[in-house]
Write a protein that binds this DNA or RNA. Structure first.
Length: 319
DNA sequence: CGCATTTGACCTGCGC
DNA sequence: GCGCAGGTCAAATGCG
Protein backbone atom coordinates (compact mmCIF):
# COMPACT_ATOMS: atom_id res chain seq x y z
CA UNK A 1 0.00 0.00 0.00
CA UNK A 2 2.86 2.16 0.32
CA UNK A 3 2.97 3.54 -3.06
CA UNK A 4 -0.33 3.91 -4.63
CA UNK A 5 0.12 6.95 -6.62
CA UNK A 6 0.49 9.84 -4.38
CA UNK A 7 -0.19 13.18 -5.80
CA UNK A 8 1.04 16.39 -4.52
CA UNK A 9 -0.64 19.50 -3.60
CA UNK A 10 0.95 22.36 -1.92
CA UNK A 11 0.52 24.26 1.17
CA UNK A 12 1.85 27.72 1.39
CA UNK A 13 1.44 30.57 3.68
CA UNK A 14 -0.75 28.76 6.04
CA UNK A 15 -3.30 27.79 3.53
CA UNK A 16 -3.74 24.93 1.24
CA UNK A 17 -3.45 26.37 -2.14
CA UNK A 18 -3.48 23.29 -4.09
CA UNK A 19 -5.11 20.25 -2.84
CA UNK A 20 -5.05 17.36 -5.08
CA UNK A 21 -7.54 14.74 -4.54
CA UNK A 22 -7.01 11.51 -6.18
CA UNK A 23 -9.58 8.89 -6.11
CA UNK A 24 -8.90 5.60 -7.62
CA UNK A 25 -10.54 2.33 -7.65
CA UNK A 26 -8.78 -0.84 -6.95
CA UNK A 27 -10.70 -3.87 -7.70
CA UNK A 28 -13.96 -2.34 -6.86
CA UNK A 29 -12.64 -0.29 -4.10
CA UNK A 30 -12.25 3.37 -4.21
CA UNK A 31 -9.04 4.70 -3.02
CA UNK A 32 -8.61 8.05 -1.60
CA UNK A 33 -5.19 9.19 -0.90
CA UNK A 34 -4.04 12.36 0.59
CA UNK A 35 -0.62 13.50 0.80
CA UNK A 36 0.84 16.49 2.40
CA UNK A 37 4.30 17.02 1.37
CA UNK A 38 7.10 19.38 1.42
CA UNK A 39 10.72 19.22 0.88
CA UNK A 40 13.15 18.25 3.40
CA UNK A 41 13.97 19.38 6.77
CA UNK A 42 17.58 19.50 7.42
CA UNK A 43 18.14 16.92 10.04
CA UNK A 44 21.54 18.15 10.66
CA UNK A 45 20.11 21.21 12.15
CA UNK A 46 17.41 19.78 14.19
CA UNK A 47 15.18 16.88 14.50
CA UNK A 48 11.84 16.91 12.99
CA UNK A 49 10.43 17.52 16.36
CA UNK A 50 12.74 20.31 17.10
CA UNK A 51 11.96 21.83 13.87
CA UNK A 52 8.35 21.64 14.59
CA UNK A 53 8.76 23.25 17.85
CA UNK A 54 11.12 25.90 17.03
CA UNK A 55 9.93 27.05 13.75
CA UNK A 56 6.39 26.69 12.84
CA UNK A 57 3.23 26.29 14.65
CA UNK A 58 1.78 24.71 11.70
CA UNK A 59 4.31 22.08 11.78
CA UNK A 60 4.00 21.69 15.41
CA UNK A 61 0.38 21.19 14.89
CA UNK A 62 0.95 18.57 12.41
CA UNK A 63 3.35 16.80 14.49
CA UNK A 64 1.18 16.99 17.50
CA UNK A 65 -1.80 16.08 15.61
CA UNK A 66 -0.10 13.12 14.18
CA UNK A 67 1.43 12.30 17.42
CA UNK A 68 4.88 12.10 16.12
CA UNK A 69 8.05 13.40 17.37
CA UNK A 70 10.54 11.57 15.34
CA UNK A 71 13.81 12.55 14.01
CA UNK A 72 12.32 12.63 10.69
CA UNK A 73 12.39 15.02 7.93
CA UNK A 74 9.41 13.68 6.20
CA UNK A 75 6.22 12.42 7.51
CA UNK A 76 3.46 10.83 5.60
CA UNK A 77 0.31 9.70 7.08
CA UNK A 78 -2.24 7.35 5.88
CA UNK A 79 -5.32 5.71 7.00
CA UNK A 80 -5.98 2.36 5.71
CA UNK A 81 -9.26 0.97 5.02
CA UNK A 82 -11.09 -0.07 2.04
CA UNK A 83 -10.74 3.16 0.36
CA UNK A 84 -7.70 5.11 -0.02
CA UNK A 85 -7.27 8.63 -0.90
CA UNK A 86 -4.19 10.56 -1.09
CA UNK A 87 -3.62 14.15 -1.14
CA UNK A 88 -0.37 15.80 -1.21
CA UNK A 89 0.55 19.06 0.00
CA UNK A 90 3.61 21.09 0.04
CA UNK A 91 4.56 23.09 2.98
CA UNK A 92 6.47 26.08 2.01
CA UNK A 93 9.75 26.75 3.56
CA UNK A 94 8.69 30.17 4.47
CA UNK A 95 6.16 28.74 6.76
CA UNK A 96 8.60 26.41 8.22
CA UNK A 97 11.27 28.77 9.05
CA UNK A 98 13.34 27.66 6.20
CA UNK A 99 12.62 24.06 6.63
CA UNK A 100 10.11 22.00 4.96
CA UNK A 101 8.74 18.67 5.67
CA UNK A 102 6.57 16.20 4.04
CA UNK A 103 3.43 14.74 5.27
CA UNK A 104 1.44 12.30 3.33
CA UNK A 105 -1.88 11.02 4.30
CA UNK A 106 -3.43 7.96 2.95
CA UNK A 107 -6.95 7.26 3.83
CA UNK A 108 -8.06 3.83 3.29
CA UNK A 109 -10.74 2.01 4.96
CA UNK A 110 -10.84 -1.60 5.40
CA UNK A 111 -13.81 -2.76 3.68
CA UNK A 112 -14.77 -5.97 5.06
CA UNK A 113 -12.40 -8.67 4.73
CA UNK A 114 -12.96 -9.14 1.16
CA UNK A 115 -10.65 -6.53 0.04
CA UNK A 116 -7.56 -8.26 -0.78
CA UNK A 117 -5.67 -5.41 -2.03
CA UNK A 118 -5.45 -3.64 1.10
CA UNK A 119 -6.05 -6.92 2.46
CA UNK A 120 -2.59 -7.94 2.74
CA UNK A 121 -2.16 -5.28 5.17
CA UNK A 122 -5.26 -5.82 6.89
CA UNK A 123 -5.17 -7.89 9.72
CA UNK A 124 -7.24 -10.55 9.04
CA UNK A 125 -8.26 -11.66 12.24
CA UNK A 126 -7.00 -9.95 15.05
CA UNK A 127 -10.09 -9.24 16.80
CA UNK A 128 -10.40 -12.55 18.17
CA UNK A 129 -7.63 -12.23 20.48
CA UNK A 130 -6.09 -9.00 20.23
CA UNK A 131 -9.21 -7.31 20.79
CA UNK A 132 -8.64 -7.79 24.36
CA UNK A 133 -5.61 -7.52 26.39
CA UNK A 134 -4.39 -10.86 26.79
CA UNK A 135 -3.70 -11.27 30.26
CA UNK A 136 -6.83 -9.75 31.38
CA UNK A 137 -9.55 -11.36 29.59
CA UNK A 138 -8.93 -14.75 28.49
CA UNK A 139 -9.37 -15.90 31.76
CA UNK A 140 -8.93 -19.41 31.65
CA UNK A 141 -8.24 -20.18 28.23
CA UNK A 142 -6.50 -23.32 28.08
CA UNK A 143 -4.51 -23.18 25.04
CA UNK A 144 -3.68 -19.98 23.44
CA UNK A 145 -4.28 -21.20 20.04
CA UNK A 146 -7.31 -23.07 20.82
CA UNK A 147 -9.03 -19.87 21.53
CA UNK A 148 -8.40 -18.43 18.24
CA UNK A 149 -10.23 -21.08 16.51
CA UNK A 150 -13.39 -20.53 18.32
CA UNK A 151 -13.99 -17.15 16.94
CA UNK A 152 -14.07 -18.50 13.53
CA UNK A 153 -16.94 -17.40 11.51
CA UNK A 154 -17.09 -14.02 12.98
CA UNK A 155 -15.67 -11.33 10.90
CA UNK A 156 -13.75 -9.21 13.02
CA UNK A 157 -14.34 -5.64 12.76
CA UNK A 158 -11.30 -3.99 11.52
CA UNK A 159 -10.22 -0.87 13.18
CA UNK A 160 -9.33 2.10 11.13
CA UNK A 161 -5.70 2.38 10.48
CA UNK A 162 -3.53 5.31 9.98
CA UNK A 163 -0.13 4.92 8.50
CA UNK A 164 2.74 7.29 8.42
CA UNK A 165 5.75 7.12 6.29
CA UNK A 166 8.48 9.00 7.95
CA UNK A 167 12.02 9.68 7.16
CA UNK A 168 13.76 8.57 10.18
CA UNK A 169 16.76 6.70 11.29
CA UNK A 170 14.97 5.27 14.22
CA UNK A 171 12.23 2.81 13.71
CA UNK A 172 10.16 3.80 16.59
CA UNK A 173 8.69 7.20 16.52
CA UNK A 174 8.04 8.92 19.74
CA UNK A 175 4.35 9.44 19.75
CA UNK A 176 3.75 9.82 23.39
CA UNK A 177 2.32 6.44 24.09
CA UNK A 178 4.02 3.47 25.52
CA UNK A 179 4.28 0.50 23.27
CA UNK A 180 5.20 -3.03 23.87
CA UNK A 181 6.63 -5.03 21.09
CA UNK A 182 4.88 -8.30 20.70
CA UNK A 183 6.21 -9.59 17.49
CA UNK A 184 8.43 -9.16 14.56
CA UNK A 185 8.16 -10.69 11.17
CA UNK A 186 10.22 -10.65 8.09
CA UNK A 187 8.46 -8.90 5.30
CA UNK A 188 8.35 -10.41 1.92
CA UNK A 189 10.37 -8.56 -0.63
CA UNK A 190 11.94 -6.52 2.03
CA UNK A 191 15.14 -7.05 3.90
CA UNK A 192 13.70 -5.19 6.81
CA UNK A 193 11.51 -6.84 9.38
CA UNK A 194 8.18 -5.51 10.48
CA UNK A 195 7.69 -4.98 14.15
CA UNK A 196 4.39 -5.20 15.93
CA UNK A 197 3.63 -3.09 18.92
CA UNK A 198 0.71 -2.85 21.23
CA UNK A 199 -0.16 -0.02 23.54
CA UNK A 200 0.84 -1.05 27.01
CA UNK A 201 -2.08 0.65 28.63
CA UNK A 202 -4.59 -1.81 29.91
CA UNK A 203 -7.67 -2.18 27.85
CA UNK A 204 -6.19 -0.14 25.12
CA UNK A 205 -6.17 -2.20 22.00
CA UNK A 206 -4.27 0.15 19.83
CA UNK A 207 -1.55 -1.46 17.85
CA UNK A 208 1.01 -0.27 15.48
CA UNK A 209 3.31 -1.81 13.00
CA UNK A 210 6.62 -0.41 12.13
CA UNK A 211 8.61 -1.33 9.13
CA UNK A 212 11.28 0.24 7.08
CA UNK A 213 10.71 0.76 3.44
CA UNK A 214 12.87 -1.45 1.38
CA UNK A 215 12.73 0.99 -1.44
CA UNK A 216 13.91 3.79 0.68
CA UNK A 217 15.58 2.51 3.80
CA UNK A 218 15.58 5.95 5.19
CA UNK A 219 11.85 5.88 5.54
CA UNK A 220 9.88 4.13 8.19
CA UNK A 221 6.30 3.12 7.73
CA UNK A 222 4.32 3.23 10.92
CA UNK A 223 0.78 2.00 10.85
CA UNK A 224 -1.50 2.70 13.75
CA UNK A 225 -4.60 0.71 14.31
CA UNK A 226 -7.35 1.51 16.70
CA UNK A 227 -7.89 4.38 18.99
CA UNK A 228 -6.44 5.02 22.35
CA UNK A 229 -9.01 5.08 25.05
CA UNK A 230 -6.81 6.72 27.57
CA UNK A 231 -4.73 9.80 28.01
CA UNK A 232 -1.12 9.94 27.11
CA UNK A 233 0.99 8.34 29.74
CA UNK A 234 2.46 10.95 31.96
CA UNK A 235 5.63 9.08 32.39
CA UNK A 236 6.63 9.03 28.88
CA UNK A 237 10.06 9.96 28.22
CA UNK A 238 9.94 11.95 25.27
CA UNK A 239 8.46 15.01 24.24
CA UNK A 240 4.95 14.12 23.74
CA UNK A 241 3.75 14.68 27.19
CA UNK A 242 5.43 17.95 27.33
CA UNK A 243 4.60 18.85 23.85
CA UNK A 244 0.99 18.12 23.86
CA UNK A 245 -1.23 20.55 25.53
CA UNK A 246 -3.60 19.04 28.00
CA UNK A 247 -6.38 19.36 25.58
CA UNK A 248 -4.64 17.07 23.25
CA UNK A 249 -3.93 14.50 25.82
CA UNK A 250 -7.47 13.56 26.26
CA UNK A 251 -8.43 10.22 24.98
CA UNK A 252 -11.84 11.26 23.96
CA UNK A 253 -12.38 11.25 20.29
CA UNK A 254 -14.35 14.33 20.83
CA UNK A 255 -11.43 16.03 22.32
CA UNK A 256 -8.36 17.10 20.59
CA UNK A 257 -6.62 14.61 18.49
CA UNK A 258 -4.01 12.87 20.45
CA UNK A 259 -3.77 10.09 18.03
CA UNK A 260 -3.81 9.97 14.32
CA UNK A 261 -7.22 8.52 14.21
CA UNK A 262 -8.49 11.21 16.29
CA UNK A 263 -7.57 13.50 13.55
CA UNK A 264 -10.05 11.74 11.49
CA UNK A 265 -12.52 12.02 14.20
CA UNK A 266 -12.24 15.67 13.77
CA UNK A 267 -13.19 15.39 10.22
CA UNK A 268 -16.69 15.99 9.10
CA UNK A 269 -18.79 12.95 9.07
CA UNK A 270 -16.35 10.86 10.82
CA UNK A 271 -18.20 11.02 14.04
CA UNK A 272 -21.38 10.69 12.33
CA UNK A 273 -20.29 7.57 10.68
CA UNK A 274 -18.68 6.23 13.71
CA UNK A 275 -21.59 6.96 15.88
CA UNK A 276 -23.86 5.33 13.51
CA UNK A 277 -21.58 2.42 13.50
CA UNK A 278 -21.41 2.28 9.84
CA UNK A 279 -19.94 -0.84 8.46
CA UNK A 280 -16.24 -0.69 8.40
CA UNK A 281 -16.33 -1.10 4.73
CA UNK A 282 -18.21 1.97 4.00
CA UNK A 283 -17.00 3.97 6.82
CA UNK A 284 -14.14 5.53 5.09
CA UNK A 285 -15.65 5.64 1.78
CA UNK A 286 -18.25 7.90 3.05
CA UNK A 287 -15.98 9.48 5.39
CA UNK A 288 -13.38 10.64 3.16
CA UNK A 289 -15.41 11.59 0.29
CA UNK A 290 -17.05 14.24 2.32
CA UNK A 291 -13.70 15.04 3.57
CA UNK A 292 -12.58 15.87 0.14
CA UNK A 293 -15.60 17.85 -0.46
CA UNK A 294 -14.90 19.63 2.65
CA UNK A 295 -11.45 20.40 1.54
CA UNK A 296 -12.60 21.62 -1.72
CA UNK A 297 -15.33 23.63 -0.28
CA UNK A 298 -12.78 25.46 1.66
CA UNK A 299 -10.73 26.09 -1.30
CA UNK A 300 -8.67 28.67 0.30
CA UNK A 301 -9.08 27.86 3.79
CA UNK A 302 -6.55 29.04 6.08
CA UNK A 303 -5.54 25.70 7.04
CA UNK A 304 -8.82 24.27 6.02
CA UNK A 305 -7.69 20.80 6.48
CA UNK A 306 -5.37 21.33 9.29
CA UNK A 307 -7.74 23.40 11.19
CA UNK A 308 -10.07 20.60 11.22
CA UNK A 309 -7.45 18.23 12.21
CA UNK A 310 -5.67 20.11 14.85
CA UNK A 311 -6.65 22.52 17.52
CA UNK A 312 -7.07 25.95 16.20
CA UNK A 313 -4.79 27.19 18.85
CA UNK A 314 -2.00 25.53 17.04
CA UNK A 315 -2.76 27.04 13.79
CA UNK A 316 -1.51 30.30 12.78
CA UNK A 317 -4.31 32.48 11.71
CA UNK A 318 -3.40 35.03 9.27
CA UNK A 319 -5.49 38.02 8.62
C1' DC B 1 11.27 -8.01 40.62
C1' DG B 2 8.73 -5.99 37.07
C1' DC B 3 8.61 -4.84 32.53
C1' DA B 4 10.17 -4.96 27.75
C1' DT B 5 12.17 -7.52 24.00
C1' DT B 6 13.30 -11.60 21.38
C1' DT B 7 11.99 -15.38 18.87
C1' DG B 8 10.04 -19.73 17.31
C1' DA B 9 5.65 -21.77 16.92
C1' DC B 10 1.12 -21.39 15.72
C1' DC B 11 -3.11 -19.58 13.43
C1' DT B 12 -5.63 -17.53 9.61
C1' DG B 13 -6.61 -15.86 5.06
C1' DC B 14 -5.63 -16.06 0.39
C1' DG B 15 -3.98 -17.58 -4.09
C1' DC B 16 -2.88 -21.36 -6.94
C1' DG C 1 -5.57 -29.11 -0.30
C1' DC C 2 -1.18 -26.94 -0.05
C1' DG C 3 2.00 -23.37 0.49
C1' DC C 4 2.91 -18.68 1.48
C1' DA C 5 2.66 -14.51 3.97
C1' DG C 6 0.90 -11.80 7.60
C1' DG C 7 -0.21 -11.55 12.27
C1' DT C 8 -0.17 -13.13 17.16
C1' DC C 9 1.09 -15.74 21.23
C1' DA C 10 3.90 -16.72 24.98
C1' DA C 11 8.09 -18.76 26.95
C1' DA C 12 12.64 -17.40 27.42
C1' DT C 13 15.67 -13.85 28.07
C1' DG C 14 17.47 -9.31 29.01
C1' DC C 15 17.58 -5.05 31.44
C1' DG C 16 17.06 -1.38 34.87
Amino acid sequence: MSDHGFRDFYYHGGAFNNIDHDQQSYGGETDHMYRVSSSSIDPSYMSFTDCLHSTSMDYGSLEKAFGLSPTSSEVFSSVEGGNRTMMKQHVGADELGGNTGEVTATLNSSVSSSSSEAGCEEDSDKSKKDGQPKGSDDGGESSKKGNKAKMKGEKKQREPRFAFVTKSEVDQLEDGYRWRKYGQKAVKNSPYPRSYYRCTTQKCTVKKRVERSFQDPSTVITTYEGQHNHPLPTTLRGSAAGLFPPSMLTPSPLGRPSFPHELLMQMPNYHHQMNNQAPAGSMFVENFSPFHQYVHQHQVPDYGLLQDMVPSTFLKHEP
